[in-house]
Amino acid sequence: MPDMTSLAHPQQRAFNPYTENGGTILAIAGADFSVIAGDTRQSEGYSIQTRYAPKVFRLTDRAVLAVNGFAADGNMFVKKVKQRLEWYRHAHAKDMPLRAIARLIQTMLYARRFFPYYVYNILGGIEEDGTGAVYSFDPVGSYEREACRAAGAAQSLVQPFLDNQIYFKNQVPAPGTSHPAHLPLPTVLSIVIDSFTSATERHIEVGDGLEIYIVLAKGRTLHGTESIGGMQELTTTDDGERVFVVRRDLKKD
């Protein structure tokens, strides 16, 4: 029933410059590698806009950025980060280190504190000391380095699973043993794939396709993981870190 008081005093509402485009991203750091993944569905409300819209982007040979939230803000943000990294290359004749990219991202996000990019960022890659790293951000730039993080529509489904499988939370090691601090790459890849198939099963905004980026530290090989179908190398130099992408199908319903 129309509210009569509102008829007398037309209430004006501001144009809403935001929307949510669904999807989920996730990243896990290993001892000498990093895995960054995202599904490829883009949706608004109950409609699937497209089954293939990438949310994970290669920034340099040692940095990969995943963005999730409002897609238009996400694309614009990635564009601006890439632009800043190019300027850095022109000024310093090298790629920006990962921890510097992380701080750059926090500065760029906080610069828009009062009209935020409605985007959750996860940055993965290799630090200058050769360790795998994951940085996660909130929309206004709060950030920290972690071993693993999930974000987006199915964050609440995936993150507790990761706590259990990556951090071994609530698992007691056998007497005299301890849990590994870092997992091997094949184990991490299976956990990533399981996380996304589970999220696809129970969340309507997740599905269609999965893109997994793998960043390897200098000198490390894929050993044992080359056999994974659909793997493609994206590395641009031949004496540094290496970047690979694996594309897989997820359920489309």
């Binding site: 497209t50 819209a53 897609a71």
Partner: peptide, 11 residues
């Protein structure tokens, strides 16, 4: 596709 929010996609 492009809309009033600047959302884009292809299919």
């Amino acid at each position: 596709f492009v809309d009033l929010l600047g959302t884009t996609y292809t299919a």
